[in-house]
Amino acid sequence: MRILIHHTASANVTDYSQAAAYANAHWIQDLHMDTNGWIDSGQHFTNSRGGFLLEGRHGSLAALRAGDRVVVGAHCPGQNTAAIGIENEGLYMDVEPPKLQWDSLVSFCVYTCEQYGIPPTEIQGHRDYRDTLCPGDRLYALLPRLRQEVARVLGA
Results as ranks from 00 to 15, higher is better:
residue 152 R to L: 02
residue 83 A to L: 04
residue 64 L to Y: 06
residue 132 T to V: 15
residue 123 I to V: 11
residue 53 L to W: 14
residue 24 N to L: 08
residue 147 R to Y: 05
residue 38 W to D: 15
residue 84 I to P: 14
residue 93 M to G: 08
residue 17 S to E: 13
residue 132 T to P: 00
residue 74 A to L: 05
residue 108 F to H: 07
residue 113 C to N: 04
residue 100 L to D: 12
residue 68 D to H: 05
residue 140 Y to G: 06
residue 86 I to F: 06
residue 31 L to M: 12
residue 98 P to F: 00
residue 80 N to Q: 08
residue 76 C to R: 04
residue 92 Y to T: 09
residue 81 T to H: 12
residue 129 Y to R: 15
residue 133 L to P: 04
residue 106 V to C: 02
residue 11 A to H: 13
residue 7 H to Q: 14
residue 129 Y to E: 15
residue 63 A to I: 05
residue 122 E to V: 03
residue 36 N to P: 05
residue 32 H to G: 14
residue 101 Q to V: 11
residue 81 T to C: 00
residue 51 G to I: 13
residue 57 R to K: 14
residue 142 L to G: 01
residue 109 C to K: 02
residue 25 A to S: 15
residue 95 V to I: 13
residue 130 R to P: 00
residue 14 T to M: 09
residue 54 L to C: 11
residue 67 G to N: 00
residue 13 V to L: 01
residue 98 P to G: 02
residue 65 R to A: 01
residue 122 E to R: 14
residue 79 Q to M: 14
residue 63 A to F: 05
residue 100 L to R: 10
residue 83 A to H: 06
residue 96 E to K: 08
residue 33 M to D: 15
residue 132 T to D: 10
residue 43 Q to H: 14
residue 28 I to N: 12
residue 33 M to H: 13
residue 79 Q to K: 04
residue 113 C to P: 08
residue 57 R to I: 11
residue 91 L to C: 14
residue 4 L to H: 15
residue 139 L to N: 11
residue 78 G to Y: 00
residue 44 H to K: 01
residue 56 G to C: 08
residue 39 I to R: 06
residue 137 D to I: 09
residue 49 R to W: 03
residue 57 R to E: 05
residue 69 R to N: 14
residue 91 L to W: 11
residue 37 G to E: 15
residue 131 D to S: 05
residue 152 R to I: 09
residue 36 N to L: 10
residue 20 A to Q: 12
residue 1 M to A: 09
residue 84 I to W: 10
residue 71 V to T: 06
residue 67 G to Y: 07
residue 6 H to E: 01
residue 35 T to E: 15
residue 29 Q to M: 03
residue 137 D to L: 13
residue 128 D to L: 12
residue 115 Q to L: 13
residue 118 I to Y: 08
residue 105 L to R: 04
residue 127 R to A: 10
residue 82 A to F: 00
residue 105 L to P: 02
residue 94 D to T: 09
residue 8 T to R: 12
residue 21 A to M: 08
residue 43 Q to A: 08
residue 68 D to M: 11
residue 43 Q to L: 13
residue 135 P to C: 09
residue 102 W to E: 00
residue 43 Q to N: 12
residue 16 Y to Q: 09
residue 107 S to E: 06
